[in-house]
C-alpha cells in the first residue's frame, strides 16, 4: 500500500475545503448562509454514520437514536436543569457514548441483515421512550430552548450562538474538528483494520485482530460523533422533538453518505449539501411543472436512492476516486 504519496494531497485538499467553507461565511447570501450552518451540522451526523457504514461496513438503520441521544442529552439538561451550553454539549456527547457502547455490545453480536434490523428495533425503542417520558420531553411537540440560553459566556464576553455568523462558525468548527478526526482515524492503523474487517472479517480475525473490539470502537466513535451533531443541532437551532428521532432520520444519513460516497472523508458533506439543494430546488420546479401532485421529499429521496444504488453504488466521490484520484481518502 502506497499511502504516503497521497498524504500531502489529502491534507491540502482538506485544508482547502475548510478554507473555502470559512470564505463562504463572508460571501454567501443570508439564505444560503443559514442553510449551510444547518447542513454542516447534519454533515457531521453523516460523517459519524460514514465511519461505521463506509469504513467498517456496518449498515445501521437506527442511527437516529444516537443523534437523538445528543439532542435530548443536551436539550433536556438545558431546558429542565438550565445547564450552560458547554456542559449540555458534554451531556449530549456522554449520552451518545454510553448508548452506542450498550447498543454496540448487543447489536455487534449480529451481522449483515440481522444487524440492520436489530439497530432499527433499538431505534424504535428509543423513539417510543421519547413518548413514554412525555412529561419531560413533550413527545412529538418537543421543546424550545430559548434564545438567551443558547450562548456561551467567558467572563464578560458573551458568545451568542443564535447570531448567524457565530452560529455558522460554531457549526464549521465542529465540522472541521470531526473532519480532522475522521481523516486521522481512517489513515491510522485502526482505520485500516476497519476496512480489513469490511472486506473480509474472517481473514482479519485470523490475522490476530480482535474484530469485535475494533467494531465496538468504531460504533462508539460513530455514536459519539452523531451525538455531537445532535447536541449541536439543539444548541444552534433551539428545538428538540421526537420527529428528529424517527425512522426517517435513520435513513437520511444513509442517503447522504451513499450520495456523496461511502468511505470517503468528504462524501458526507457533498451528499448532505447536494441532497438539501435537490429537495429545496426541486420543490419549486415540481410545483411549477407538476402542480397538484404533492411531490415531496418522499418521491425525490426514493428516486435518488434507487438511481444511486443502480448506477452510482459508490457515490459521487467514490466514483471520482475510482476514475481520477486514487489517493482520495
Amino acid at each position: 500500500m502506497k499511502n504516503d504519496d497521497g498524504a500531502g494531497k489529502a491534507i491540502t485538499l482538506h485544508a482547502g475545503v475548510i478554507a473555502v467553507l470559512v470564505a463562504l461565511n463572508f460571501v454567501l447570501p443570508d439564505y444560503h448562509h443559514g442553510v449551510m450552518a444547518r447542513v454542516l451540522v447534519l454533515a457531521v451526523y453523516a460523517m459519524g454514520y460514514n465511519l461505521l457504514f463506509g469504513y467498517a461496513g456496518l449498515l445501521s438503520l437506527g442511527h437516529a437514536m444516537f443523534f437523538a441521544a445528543g439532542l435530548y442529552g443536551a436539550g433536556l439538561t438545558m431546558y429542565h436543569l438550565n445547564w450552560g451550553v458547554p456542559s449540555a454539549f458534554i451531556a449530549g456527547l456522554v449520552a451518545g457514548v454510553l448508548l452506542s457502547l450498550v447498543i454496540g455490545v448487543l447489536a455487534l453480536r449480529t451481522k449483515g441483515v440481522a444487524f440492520m434490523i436489530v439497530t432499527m428495533m433499538f431505534a424504535q425503542v428509543a423513539y417510543l421512550l421519547v413518548y413514554y417520558f412525555g412529561t419531560w420531553t413533550r413527545g412529538d411537540e418537543g421543546l424550545v430552548i430559548q434564545q438567551q440560553a443558547r450562548a456561551i459566556e467567558f467572563g464578560a464576553t458573551r458568545l451568542d450562538l443564535t447570531d448567524p455568523t457565530t452560529r455558522y462558525m460554531a457549526a464549521l468548527l465542529l465540522f472541521s474538528v470531526v473532519l480532522v478526526i475522521t481523516l486521522i482515524v481512517v489513515r491510522s492503523s485502526f482505520g485500516r483494520v476497519l476496512v480489513a474487517i469490511r472486506e473480509n472479517e474472517e481473514r482479519t480475525k485470523m490475522l490476530g485482530y480482535d474484530t469485535f473490539a475494533n467494531k465496538l470502537a468504531a460504533m462508539v466513535a460513530s455514536g459519539a460523533i452523531c451525538a455531537a451533531a445532535g447536541a449541536a443541532y439543539v444548541i444552534l437551532f433551539g428545538y428538540v422533538g421526537s420527529t428528529l428521532a424517527s425512522v426517517q432520520y435513520s435513513i437520511l444519513p444513509l442517503l447522504w453518505v451513499l450520495l456523496g460516497g461511502a468511505a470517503t472523508t468528504l462524501g458526507p458533506l457533498v451528499g448532505t449539501v447536494l441532497m438539501y439543494y435537490l429537495i429545496d430546488g426541486s420543490s419549486d420546479l415540481l410545483k411549477a411543472y407538476l402542480p397538484g401532485w404533492n411531490v415531496s421529499y418522499l418521491g425525490i429521496v426514493g428516486v435518488a436512492l434507487i438511481l444511486l444504488v443502480l448506477f452510482f453504488p459508490k457515490g459521487l466521490l467514490g466514483t471520482v476516486r475510482d476514475r481520477f484520484a486514487r489517493w482520495l481518502p
Binding site: L59, V113, M116, I251, L254, L258, V295, S296, L298, G299, V301, G302, V303, A304, L305, I306, L308, V309, L310
Partner: peptide, 13 residues
C-alpha cells in the same frame, strides 16, 4: 435493502 427503501418512498409518493 437500500433499493427497497427507495421503493418504499416512491410508492408512498
Amino acid at each position: 435493502i437500500v433499493a427497497t427503501i427507495g421503493l418504499l418512498y416512491i410508492i408512498q409518493q
